[in-house]
Each structure stands twice: as structure tokens, then as C-alpha cells.
């Protein structure tokens, strides 16, 4: 097994990814970067690639990045584990979570 180089990095911020990009659909237009009131993202240095999530811990969870994305499916909201809502099928009683 080839061992990749391991760098020393600080802990990952929590929550680490308020959104998940789909690189096959996202064309790197950076609309989400611009509408974010917090500046959670930065444009990817490589043009055409999804933005980089730079300040995930500062996300306000207002959702404008996802709501305003012009390419459906390019960006998906990713609630932190402790914020994921539940629902229950009224007829069967089956419980689901986001």
C-alpha cells in the first residue's frame, strides 16, 4: 500500500460542510459565493470548479446559496447532524429523518 504524505493540519471546523456540491453539475459560476451574506465560500482557483467551503462554521443556514443556484442539483443543503428534523408517517407511524 502506498502511503500518501500526511500533513499536520488543525481540526476541521464544525459543522464542516453546510452544503455539498455536485462537481458534475456545478459549473463554477460562483452565484452561491456572491449571495452568501457570511462569505462562507471562496471561488475555486480552478475556473469552472465548485467553490471551496472556507468558513463552514460561520454558516447562518439561511439557504440562499442553494435557493439561488441556477443549476438544479449542483448544490445540496447538508444540515449538521444535530439539526436534522424528523417526521412521522401518520398512517404507518414510521419515523424518518432528513
Amino acid at each position: 500500500m502506498t502511503q500518501k504524505k500526511i500533513s499536520a493540519v488543525p481540526n476541521v471546523a464544525t459543522p464542516s460542510a453546510p452544503v455539498i456540491f455536485n462537481p458534475d453539475i456545478c459549473d463554477g459560476c460562483n452565484t452561491c459565493v456572491e449571495v452568501c451574506q457570511i462569505d462562507v465560500f471562496m471561488p475555486n482557483p480552478e475556473k469552472g470548479k465548485p467553490p471551496i467551503i472556507l468558513h463552514p462554521d460561520e454558516c447562518w443556514y439561511g439557504g440562499c446559496c442553494v435557493n439561488d443556484c441556477p443549476r438544479p442539483g449542483a448544490i445540496k443543503f447538508n444540515w449538521p447532524l444535530q439539526q436534522r428534523g424528523y417526521w412521522k408517517n401518520k398512517a404507518t407511524g414510521e419515523v424518518h429523518q432528513i
Binding site: Y61, N67, G85, W87, K90, H96
Partner: peptide, 21 residues
């Protein structure tokens, strides 16, 4: 900020006509 909540619930399969929130 509720707009995105509705969107994610809908996409996850929640149906307000069928499911209790």
C-alpha cells in the same frame, strides 16, 4: 430561512399531506 427547510424536507421525501412533522 424557512425556504431552505421546506426545500430540504420536500427533497428528503416529506409529504405534508401524509406526514406529521
Amino acid at each position: 430561512t424557512t425556504k431552505i427547510i421546506i426545500k430540504t424536507f420536500n427533497e428528503a421525501g416529506y409529504n405534508p399531506g401524509r406526514d406529521l412533522l
